[in-house]
């Protein structure tokens, strides 16, 4: 949205979607589209298809590094919290142990490590996926409600430099798509 409340300036449609028979056909189509030079596209399937990462050229997500950073923060934070609370701010002699009795801090530090890492893994994934996103143009595609059961779609997006309504539709048809349709916003 711009300040004037107009719709954003951009391609009038989101892209061109094609439905395919099964996972094999979808993967083959994605590979062919990449070979053809298309770069901006996405595949939609009812279950993860491992071959798709390579077919679409999806790069490894940075999620593991976010989780690692969160884990380090949780570990250092867990130890730091216990050290500050039981050595600096409120020192107490318990069972004659030294104030810095680190072995007894390991369980809590471990839990804070896991807590922060796990929350980062889950919510980091949501954030990178752009969730929550209840509306998306793909939902306008006819039969897309079957994508969570047994339908397979490939969508070449309109902002791809090579995108052309007729050419792209013809190309997708040539890949053996069962159905090709424009994706409206």
């Amino acid at each position: 949205m711009t300040a004037h409340g107009h719709k954003p300036v951009g391609p009038p449609i989101h892209g061109m979607a094609a439905r395919f028979e099964d996972a094999s056909a979808l993967t083959a189509a994605a590979r062919a589209a990449r070979l053809e030079g298309y770069a901006r596209m996405d595949a939609y399937s009812p279950f993860p298809i491992h071959e798709m990462d390579e077919a679409l050229g999806i790069r490894r997500s940075i999620l593991p590094f976010l989780v690692l950073a969160a884990g380090i923060a949780g570990c250092v934070g867990g130890f730091g919290m216990q050290w500050w609370m039981s050595v600096v701010d409120y020192p107490l002699n318990i069972a004659g142990k030294p104030l810095v009795s680190w072995p007894q801090w390991v369980p809590v530090a471990f839990e804070t490590t896991v807590l922060l890492s796990a929350l980062t893994a889950a919510f980091g994934m949501f954030a990178l996926n752009g969730f929550p996103m209840p509306y998306h143009p793909m939902f306008n595609v006819k039969g897309f409600d079957r994508v969570t059961t047994d339908a397979f779609f490939l969508c070449i997006e309109a902002d791809d430099p090579q995108f052309d309504v007729t050419q792209t539709a013809k190309f997708l048809q040539g890949l053996g798509a069962l159905e090709v349709s424009e994706v409206v916003h």
């Binding site: 069972a95 004659g96 009795s101 072995p103 007894q104 390991v106």
Partner: peptide, 12 residues
């Protein structure tokens, strides 16, 4: 290894 240590260390 750590569990054995922690248990022995704590009970002393």
């Amino acid at each position: 290894s750590f569990s054995q240590y922690l248990i022995v260390y704590s009970a002393n």
